[in-house]
């Protein structure tokens, strides 16, 4: 597969390490009343879609960016690639 790195252009998937669902960015608030339940869901419960999937890839043999890659799990078509940091900021993880 080729991943179109937002900073570096198309790179072979071999340069990356795969983590999984980009929902891992949404780490719950540790002080929430139901923090234990939220963390349980965050850590153990994942969707397994046949179709579009937003997922985290680490450019380990490259510039060490974490990317959010939107990939169709059926066709492997990649429709969007963003820096995970930008995604995290957009999703409200700025402190």
């Amino acid at each position: 597969m080729l991943i179109n790195h937002p900073l570096l252009g198309p790179r072979d998937a071999q340069e990356f390490t795969y983590l999984g669902d980009a929902a891992l960015i949404q780490r719950p608030d540790w002080q929430a009343d139901d923090a234990a339940d939220q963390f349980h869901e965050y850590l153990y419960l994942r969707d397994n879609p046949a179709g579009l999937h937003r997922e985290l890839w680490f450019h380990e043999a490259g510039d060490r960016s974490w990317l959010v890659v939107t990939r169709n799990t059926v066709t492997h078509e990649i429709t969007d690639v963003q820096l995970a940091r930008d995604v995290a900021r957009n999703e409200g993880r700025s402190t």
Partner: peptide, 14 residues
């Protein structure tokens, strides 16, 4: 790898 994940994905503005 995990530290970069925390830095970029969990606390992006530190």
């Amino acid at each position: 790898r995990n530290m970069e994940f925390a830095r970029q994905c969990l606390w992006p503005d530190l």
